[in-house]
Design a protein around this nucleic acid. Structure first.
Lengths: 207, 207
DNA sequence: CTATGTGAATTTATTCACAGCA
DNA sequence: TGCTGTGAATAAATTCACATAG
């Protein structure tokens, strides 16, 4: 099944696999079967095997997968090899949390710049990052920052996105609860945790 | 197409529709077509019509949909009518951000309790919520809190989930980067923002 | 004439079942 | 024998095209 288009759903699951595999690696486990990984992640084995099969022979028949090899392969597929520099726009409550958040670096991301419109915040230093005026966003290209994280109020999100695109970012992670349009091939991923929470009651029994 | 099983993907999109519709309502728009809503949300019109059709006739042919009516219907389907009380476990950086987060109430959620293991934090008051010892989690049922939000370290996540289930919660929102097993029909939704971020480079051009 | 609502067609994803290899 | 890798079968979701109602 090599040389096929990779299903979006497979790409969506790869970070899940990676997260679990890295967790196993920390524990010192260096070999695992599709069944073992499936149980650990709460998915089914054939799904894992099918997903991996799109990329080539990752495992050894009759034995299983080498955890370290899998981690390397998936990181390569997801282009997580290099460190990706990211800029945060909006240093409110959420922005502060994102600055402190340790989960990014597992995937090779590093928040190296922060911007805000509030003059009271500009110049302050948080986690070794000095908050800059949003007018400085245009310097991102020069600083080789290719990722933007929007944690601004909803009203400002679209405008911020456009500024980021002008500054040459290739991807945007949008935490504002709204849809954002960008020109060209820039990828936007919107995360609204309240939206995930909102479908919880639907699935909750007797409620 | 009434009296059909509702596709999970449709349920996943309902909060998106709701978010957009409530945003339109704030703007004072009280009528919209599937095309109009689709453009506003960045999806396609027939998807919206199909999704709505699972629940009955929401609109008027030749005219469109009444925004307020749609909002009411979707809130009803998602069981967001009543206020859902939620408890937060783990008041670290992420936990603090979640306590301050204003996005929950749009969907009728209210974080009314917070717990931590750290004795230095216990007793402190944040946003009118006094941080309690995790041993108090067992009081949740009495306090009619049916939702748990886990913002504890990964190692503690599974144990925390089990404590929450014993305390009678019906749903769990898990922010720890790991899979959680729960007995019975309790619904768990895991949110790991780094996982969404991790598939961004894959879709980014020339990177 | 407009925009919804929905069967039918198409595309996409999941699951199965087993061949193939260590 | 055990577990992977994968074509084939099944299931699910998306898209289309148009009948239908205001």
């Amino acid at each position: 099944m090599r040389y096929h288009k990779i299903p979006d759903e497979t790409v969506r699951r790869l970070p899940l696999y990676l997260r679990g595999l890295q967790s196993l690696l920390e524990k010192g486990q260096n070999s695992i079967s599709s069944k073992g990984l499936a149980d650990f992640l709460g998915v089914n084995p054939w799904q894992i095997r099918k997903d991996f099969s799109y990329f080539g022979d990752f495992g050894t028949r009759g034995v299983g997968y080498k955890v370290e090899h899998l981690v390397k392969q998936i990181r390569k597929i997801l282009k997580l090899g290099a460190v990706h520099k990211a800029a945060l726009i909006g240093v409110g409550n959420l922005g502060l949390a994102l600055l402190a958040y340790q989960g990014f670096k597992v995937y090779g991301f590093e928040v190296v710049a922060a911007f805000d419109v509030d003059s009271k915040k500009i110049g302050k230093k948080i986690n070794n990052i000095t908050i800059e005026n949003v007018s400085n966003i245009k310097t991102l290209k020069k600083r080789k920052i290719s990722l933007g994280i929007i944690a601004a109020p909803r009203e400002a999100a679209q405008e911020t996105a456009e500024t980021l695109v002008k500054a040459g970012v290739k991807g945007i992670l949008n935490f504002s609860p709204c849809y954002i349009t960008v020109p060209g091939k820039i990828k936007v991923i919107t995360i609204d945790i309240a939206m995930d929470l909102a479908r919880l009651p639907y699935y909750m029994p007797s409620c």
